[in-house]
Every structure is written in structure tokens, then in C-alpha cells.
Design a binder for these strands. Structure first.
Lengths: 229, 229
DNA sequence: TATGATAATTTGTGATAACAAACACTATGA
DNA sequence: TCATAGTGTTTGTTATCACAAATTATCATA
């Protein structure tokens, strides 16, 4: 068994009493670990080593991880160790059924409110996505992919809905990263869906936007699921 | 301002080292406080008084309340006091758009899996609901109403979906209680929707079940919203 | 009486330590 | 060689305490 070592790649130090609580700063970093797939299904995340990396006590780390457990992004196996959940076929299916419903709803509603500059920004992100993927920069690809979707969803002005979608992305994050790395060579045409999203947004065609987003989600799970076991 | 006094009505003592953690026992009780509307929008929930009522330290109470804040069922106002959020028109609309999508999905999928005994049990709950409402027993009404919906949703076998729906109910709980008390006299025909749900379940008509559930949710918000400011 | 400064209290956050349950390892026996 | 009991370690949970920020109460001043 390989020593996990540093999982955070922590650079900037956390600061106490600086506006937001340590718990939230740690939560933010852990979120990106999941979204970016820097942790792997099955991996253990013990409190004490993490607290040492962050130079804090157990408590804020515990708070952050408990939150992620509540969100379903982490799990307590045998109620004694916190780990990244394995992705099963059932869970993947369920998560994407929900994603389709909620992200479809957000996209449809965003159509009526999103600004032209936000649409331009989203369109630009498609290019940066492709460039990152071509360069083998998976981190950059995932970051841009995230930004593309969430600039659109955020325009729906539905804070609760947006939070629920974020939780879903946290849950599929580790799986998504693995799938992207496996399937990167064979796939770039997810961007055809993305282009259709942009086109429908420009035309203010809410139904079209929803359909394009739903198809994007559907295609993604098809491809990634087909590319691996 | 009235002294809040005991909010829990705590009877059974909590037990340490008895299977599930104190945090979860407290969380369970707080959940029912919200679902049953025993706390009121705007009400403060300070850690120390609660800890004293539960005869525990701050920590498990803190954990439970943090979880509910994460779920959006409570909020940190000015990041120094925890309180039950006020219900705004926007929030109510958003919550019910999401409820309609997710509960519709759960009901539709439950249709194919739910057992006949579960259907019978749900049908029976309709009667108990009516009886409780007629007797002015709002607690009983709400409890039966909850059981009716969740015996159906649980049959869908979608754990993540079920958890998300529970969170939504936590958020509308206090508002729902207020609305029921206000509108109790004028409304019993929500049960016509409930009867239609049972009928469609017996016919294994998934589309009909979804439609009936969606209409139930829609009617409910219409009535309760109309009955109050 | 109204208003603004200031002190006292209350609040959530974070650190440290003690604890019990789960885990991992080792020695023992067949 | 393999199973098993025993022991030491690791893990999350809870209690207690210290702290800073926000709130509330108090009182001087206009």
C-alpha cells in the first residue's frame, strides 16, 4: 500500500480570524480535491493527518469533512474511517437522473436571465476547455468545464438549486476525473453539445438550452461509462 | 419578546455510547422540530441552551445544527446566531419547483417497485390524515402526511434522491405548519390528489402517479400561499 | 426624550485532552 | 501453513476551556 502522503498540495497557509472560519477555508480546499478528482474512490481521509497538513486542530477539519459526508461526497465506512465513496452503476445512474432534472431546470431558467457578456464568457470557456484537453491538462479542462456549466446555472438566480447541483458535482467529481483521463483521446465531441447550448442561449430558446444540457449530461455518462469498467 | 424556554419538549434522555452518536440523536430531534413546525421562522437556536436541554456539551449540538445549516434548514444570520430562516416568496417558489421535479421523479420510479402492502399502508394513512385534521391534531396530520409521501418515495429505491427530498421538506417544514394551521378549516380536498395517487399506483400508471404528485404539490403551495400573506 | 459611546454579556469557533470502538499486527496453537 | 486470540495503534466522538466577534444593556450627553 502506497503512503498517501500529502493530499492537499497545500501552498497558501490558512489564516485564523481572517474573515471566514478555518472550517470554510478547509471545506473549500476539500471541495476542489473532489471536483478535480485529486482524491480517488476508496481513498481514506483521516482527520489527524489532514489537520497536520493544514496546521490546525482536528475540529475545523472534522467540521469540513462532516459536511462533505452529509452531502454524500464522502462516506463513513463502518463509522470509523472517512473515505471517498466507490462509484457503483446504480449510484451513477441515480446521480445523473437527478443531474438531468436539476441542471435542465437551471439551464432553462437561466436562458431568460443570462447576460450577453456571460454567454460570451461561456463560449470562450469552450475553447479553453478544448485547449486544455489537447495539452493533456486535465486540471485545466475540469476547471473550465466546471466554469462553463456554472456560469450558466448561476444565471438562473436559484441559490438552493445551485447548491444542490454543486453537491451532485462533488459526488461525481472523482469518477469524472478518472473517466476523462481514460477517455480523453477518443472524445472531444462533447463540445458539440456545448456549442448547441451557446447557440440556444443566444437565441433565448429555453427549451433548446434544456435539451442541449440534458443531452450533454446523457452523452457524458454514456461515454465515460462505456470507456471503463 | 417571549422567552423561548424549552424548544425540544425533550422526554427520553439521550444516551452516550449507545450505538449512534449523540450528534445523530440530536439531529433526529431537531429534524422533527422543523418538520413538525415546532420552531417558527425567525426563531433563534443558540447552542448553549440547547446543549443544556439535551444534557450534553456544545459539540454534538453544534454538529447537528451545522448540518442543518448546511442543508439550508437553518441559517447563520450575521454569522453569529443560528436561526430558522424566514420564508420569502422567491424561496418558496424555488423550493416547490425543485420539489415538483424530484418528488415527481421519485413517485414515477416508485410506481414500478412499490409493494401492494405499501400501497395499502399509504391508503390507510390518508384516512388517518383526515381524522387527525378533523380533530385539530396538527402534529398527527403532519406526521401522517409525511409518512404518506415518504412510504411512496422510499419505494423508488433511490437513496440520494430520497435524501434530497428530505432536505426540501426540512426547509418548508416551519412554513407548512403555519399554513396548515391557518388554512385547516377550508381545505381537505388535497386528499383528492392523494386518492388519485393511490389509484394510479394500484393501476401501476407511472405517468399518472407523477402527475398526481405534482398536482398535489402545486395545489398545496397555491392554497397555503393564498391563505396567508 | 432621543442618541451615541461604552461596558457587559452572549455567541459561535477553535484547541486540547480523554475516551471507546474499530483496526492492524503479532504471537500462539493446531 | 493457516486460523485465532491478544495487544497496541489508529480513528472519530465528546467534554472542557479559551477566545474574538457580535449583540445587548447601560449610561452620559444633547
Amino acid at each position: 500500500m502506497a503512503a498517501t502522503g500529502s493530499v492537499t498540495g497545500s501552498i497558501a497557509k490558512l489564516q485564523r480570524h481572517s474573515g471566514e472560519p478555518l472550517r470554510d477555508q478547509i471545506l473549500q480546499r476539500c471541495r476542489w480535491l473532489l471536483l478535480g478528482g485529486h482524491v480517488v474512490p476508496g481513498q481514506k481521509l483521516p482527520l489527524r493527518p489532514l489537520a497536520e497538513e493544514f496546521n490546525t486542530s482536528l475540529m475545523p477539519v472534522r467540521d469540513a469533512l462532516n459536511r462533505l459526508v452529509a452531502d454524500g461526497a464522502l462516506e463513513l465506512s463502518s463509522s470509523r474511517t472517512i473515505r471517498v465513496p466507490e462509484m457503483t452503476g446504480d449510484r451513477l445512474l441515480e446521480l445523473h437522473e437527478i443531474r438531468r432534472a436539476l441542471e435542465g431546470m437551471a439551464a432553462e431558467q437561466a436562458t431568460h436571465h443570462i447576460s450577453n457578456t456571460a454567454i460570451d464568457r461561456a463560449a470562450q470557456l469552450i475553447g479553453e476547455m478544448e485547449a486544455a484537453l489537447a495539452a493533456g491538462d486535465f486540471d485545466g479542462y475540469i476547471r473550465n468545464h466546471y466554469s462553463f456549466h456554472f456560469t450558466i446555472y448561476a444565471a438562473a438566480n436559484r441559490p438552493t438549486l445551485l447548491g444542490m447541483i454543486e453537491v451532485l458535482w462533488l459526488q461525481v467529481g472523482p469518477w469524472f476525473r478518472q473517466g476523462i483521463e481514460r477517455a480523453s483521446a477518443m472524445r472531444i465531441d462533447a463540445n458539440t453539445c456545448h456549442d448547441r447550448v451557446i447557440g440556444a442561449l443566444r437565441a433565448r430558446d429555453a427549451t433548446g438550452v434544456r435539451a442541449a444540457i440534458e443531452e450533454d449530461i446523457f452523452d457524458r455518462i454514456e461515454d465515460l461509462h462505456a470507456s471503463g469498467p
